[in-house]
Design a protein around this nucleic acid. Structure first.
Lengths: 172, 172
DNA sequence: CCCATGTTGATAACGATTCTCAATATCACG
DNA sequence: CGTGATATTGAGAATCGTTATCAACATGGG
């Protein structure tokens, strides 16, 4: 039932990330050349940093991190690069309830949805065939042909719930 | 399979709306008094207009409409009033992909999700028990206790698909 | 009717994102 | 290795939706 793969920015092998980063850079390069665009130092740094961070990266976080490597990259460039990445299928933008866009590395794996902890902000990915099927069915029954969807579950993760219980016990 | 009730701002009885509006106004009044707040002319106008519009009302649309009745109501007041309404459970804010908040009249009926046409913007509400159950299950299997969720299906409604097919035929 | 207190309108401020544009980097070509 | 055409950059202005500020103004209990 809903196998998950990466449970947060903190997990996932570093080696994998570097690998992903390389592939992405190559793919971006090809994509740029195809349309007569050029590549640049800052795009490379941004892509590498993005993959090094993994998980669901908020733009300002990425900017901050990138600037530890090259203090003069502008926010505009980061935004532009991220848009490029999503255009060439390397990254996917996500907008959760907090109103800021986060990007996650695109995987060739199938679509997934998110479980978001309102306590610690942890984001867990999951996929569930049955839910997708039901969505299709509901949509069709209303005459719709779905081409994308957004499913986010907000709640508290086990860690946060335990922590709460702890403080409650301590208090009483 | 997913009974829907109101399929858009254009549908739903006027009489029902006026009824809803009255109830809401009364409820708001009580709520205000409970906490020593005052009521005002503009709040009344806003609430009435809100219910007259029905459906999923974007704030700027509401402002525009309200101003046909009283040209000097400020956006700030509309925002403030809408926030009040959601605090006292009369309206519910929704944020879809277009990035602007819309409000819908809160119903005592159970939670529902949305089907959004990317062609004409039509919004259809639906509910589906099975999906909710599955969500709970998936969440639990990851140690989460869900307390809210967001499910939006984006696609083209039958009308828009037919329209597209039409233009395609005409062209070829 | 009065006054303490809540509400309003105008506008400034905000955060996230995009745009503008002059300065600069890249790259294909000679 | 230049050189020029053109893509990219950085800084800051602009935009959008929304919230905060604050003086002027309602509201309603006494």
């Amino acid at each position: 039932m809903g196998r998950s793969r990466r449970t947060g920015p903190a997990e996932g092998g570093q080696a994998d990330r570097r690998e992903e980063s390389k592939l992405a850079l190559a793919r971006l390069g090809a994509w740029l050349e195809e349309r007569g665009l050029k590549h640049s130092r800052q795009r490379d740094v941004i892509v590498e940093t993005f993959f090094a961070m993994g998980g669901h990266v908020p733009v300002d976080g990425l900017v901050a991190r990138v600037r530890t490597l090259d203090a003069r990259v502008s926010v505009a460039t980061v935004y532009r690069t991220l848009k490029l990445l999503s255009e060439c299928g390397i990254a996917v933008p996500r907008r959760f309830e907090d109103g800021q866009t986060r990007y996650e590395p695109a995987t060739d794996r199938s679509h997934h949805d998110h479980l978001i902890c309102t306590g610690c902000g942890r984001i867990v990915e999951f996929e569930n065939e049955r839910i997708e099927e039901l969505q299709q069915r509901v949509a069709r029954s209303h005459g719709f042909e779905v081409d994308s969807h957004k499913l986010e579950l907000y709640g508290r993760c086990d860690r946060c719930r335990r922590a709460e219980a702890g403080t409650k016990d301590a208090r009483s």
